[in-house]
């Protein structure tokens, strides 16, 4: 490692509740790992190293959703120490699968799984994306984030630039790949509603998009909802599919449909 570590960007990588897939993705950048560790001063990365320092940071990448009281404290501490906080991966940006339930449903699920036991070390809270608790500067969605997205973010950050975002839906890359549209075949694909960046990997294999990068900006949920309904899908099934990865961000939309269907 070079001696002038002081001038390098100090980066911390933190994991809250999730599968740790986003951190793993960084380690999976095998060809670039040496360059990454040479270009930046990785202060904390529990999955990759043991000599972690919890000090001042230029950038904190936070993976996972907030699911315990301890995580709320940890997150607030990260915010205090970091100039820029990046929500890293779908659980951090949208809450992930664990945030798909309403508060009420979550309470019920918690009781069903854990019963009445008292947790001694921390208390579980309804899973939420990190911006429910702190200000977030940048969002890198994805389940997991893509290598291209992460490396491009990093190299731009090193040069002082904000990341290139993926503002388009999955359909754009799907069409580049010349896939026959699954919606036209009557398959409930969420491509038009989902942020691009995955390379349309599911539709490339004839599997409909499940929305794991979270909702695309400006996505037309109403139209797709009626389209799927016209194709014979049950309202509850469509809602479930749409809610799986959209976390807390689509609750308003579903509330509207709930009212309409009553």
């Amino acid at each position: 490692m070079s001696k002038n570590n002081d001038k390098k960007l100090k980066i911390g990588i933190y994991e809250l509740t999730g599968c740790a897939g986003d951190g793993l993705l960084i380690l999976d950048c095998e060809m670039e790992l040496v360059d990454i560790f040479q270009a930046a001063d990785i202060q904390s990365f529990l999955m990759a190293k043991s000599d972690n320092i919890d000090g001042e940071l230029d950038i904190a990448l936070v993976e996972g959703s907030v699911s315990t009281e301890r995580e709320i404290e940890e997150l607030k501490d990260i915010r205090k120490r970091a100039q820029v906080v990046v929500a890293f991966g779908l659980c951090a940006t949208h809450g992930g699968i664990q945030a798909r339930f309403s508060e009420e449903e979550w309470q019920k699920n918690l009781k069903e799984v854990y019963g009445d036991i008292e947790m001694s070390h921390t208390k579980a809270v309804h899973s939420k994306p990190i911006d429910e608790y702190i200000d977030v500067d940048l969002y890198l969605p994805g389940c997991p984030v893509s290598k291209d997205q992460f490396l491009n973010f990093l190299v731009r950050a090193l040069g002082g630039s904000p990341p290139e975002v993926y503002p388009n839906p999955v359909c754009v890359t799907c069409k580049y790949n010349e896939n026959d549209c699954l919606l036209l075949k009557g398959i409930p694909c969420l491509g038009p509603l989902t942020a691009d960046g995955c390379g349309a990997i599911c539709p490339n294999h004839n599997v409909p998009c499940y929305g794991c990068w979270g909702p695309a900006e400006g996505a037309n949920f109403t139209s797709e909802f009626y389209l799927l309904q016209e194709k014979g899908f049950d309202m509850e099934a469509i809602k479930k599919r749409m809610a799986n990865y959209s976390g807390t961000k689509l609750q308003e939309f579903f509330e509207k449909f709930k009212k309409e269907s009553q």
Partner: peptide, 10 residues
């Protein structure tokens, strides 16, 4: 109705 998927254009 438009899903804003850009496919017509692509």
């Amino acid at each position: 109705a438009c899903l804003a998927c850009g496919s017509c254009t692509n």
